[in-house]
Design a binder for these strands. Structure first.
Lengths: 228, 228
DNA sequence: TTCCTATTACTCGGCGACGAGTATACGGAT
DNA sequence: ATCCGTATACTCGTCGCCGAGTAATAGGAA
């Protein structure tokens, strides 16, 4: 009977490895190359350090098996792995979960925003504007790269959108963030957001706020979806 | 000269700890309570395991110092920490960077999307629709919670938007994702996205795509493993 | 020919993340 | 008076992450 050892194995790199091996048996370094070629390393964190750790862990869990070891000259040995039936099942189960179930994540920007009120409003505005600029150029760059990969070249055939769809997702999220950041910066700049003061009292910092946030009764919320 | 020991210290929990100590000296457990009270644990990952590790690391770096140790009865000792001048500087520098410089991140959904083409289009649609539903209810829930925290209660005063602004960011991002996912599902459903086929050839899997839209060919490999 | 850099392919050691465990105290219920 | 769940407050050990290190080969330039 199959022992139910889900283990940790939460690293998405493991998913990418399984995906490679569904295609054909490979050695770890070739998996990395394959991911790079297809730009999957943009959506799955890939480090050589982790690669071998994760492969080992997959082997321990019986999701992949070493198939052969080769050696060319006096180069280091290459172990070629193949996926098992359990590995295939794991892959599809995991993939379905990743797509259908949102998971809570902790983007660094949210952490920064959490404490933005500690800065002066003027500084907050200029930092947000800098972010907006950087986002803009990153978006332009990412879009160009995406178009190029999709169009193909001599070596690579053009690819259907769906096999690179994660790029469209990431682009859209960045665009959305850009719009939001720009809006926030201008709201702060023109005083639409009340800024609390922090005062020392009895040796600790207190937040002081007069309780009025929005100016004239414009509807307070920029929560609604504006884009599209 | 001051040795440049930036160390690792990349865990945003460290930022949150410094933020607490800017307010007043505290012991670690109280920092955790404070973060929870203000819902900062929604934007900064907080585990007791990590908390003490990070505090220790901050102390080693000279960003905080133990100020006193108390003991009530025979309870475990509590070490109260205070922020140093270096810690304050680190906090503001880090905060500015977090806000002004976008960093590459790897959301799990992007990893899932990377391999969605391996599934059948019909299944992809239903998984995406499930995600959309879950996002919808998560958004509703998060919005209610946010409004409640902002409005205050007997114990807590109402708060200005800017001190909880990370909630608006996260809401907007979720809404954006929802719109995108919904759109993708319907595009797939009505055939707007060509779906490649995967065929076995010489013992490995090849992607076949006619470059325009799909037409029903013959021997497609069935990759899918039924849900367990 | 010889040099130099890039590529191939993995190994290793340290450090950080984190769940589970420990132990005390408090307060309401019975 | 006693019970029991919850809150307080930290400790420990494991395991995963990851950058830096190693070492051999191929290919182009001088």
């Amino acid at each position: 009977m199959a022992t139910k050892r889900t283990r940790s194995l939460s690293n998405p790199l493991a998913l990418a490895i399984l995906a490679c091996l569904i295609e054909r048996p490979m050695h770890p370094y070739e998996m990395a190359q394959t991911m790079r070629e297809r730009h999957k390393h943009e959506s799955v964190r890939l480090n050589y350090g982790s690669l071998y750790t994760v492969v080992e862990s997959l082997e321990r869990s019986g999701l992949i098996v070493p198939q052969a070891t080769e050696r060319e000259g006096r180069r280091p040995e290459r172990t070629i792995y193949a996926i098992t039936e359990a590995g295939r099942a794991k892959f599809f189960g995991w993939l379905r979960t990743l797509i259908s179930k949102p998971v809570k994540e902790y983007p660094q920007f949210a952490a920064g925003l959490s404490y933005i009120a500690i800065l002066e409003p003027a500084e907050a505005v200029s930092l947000l504007e800098e972010r907006a600029q950087q986002l803009e150029s990153q978006i332009a760059e990412a879009r160009l790269l995406y178009e190029a990969v999709r169009a193909g070249s001599q070596d690579r055939p053009p690819l259907p959108r769906i096999v690179l769809i994660e790029n469209e997702y990431e682009l859209r999220m960045k665009e959305c963030e850009l719009a939001w950041v720009t809006r926030l910066a201008s709201d702060i700049a023109n005083g639409a957001l009340a800024w609390p003061r922090f005062v020392m009292r009895d040796g600790h910092l207190d937040l002081v706020w007069d309780g009025e946030d929005r100016k004239e009764g414009s509807e307070e919320t920029n929560l609604t979806v504006a884009t599209e």
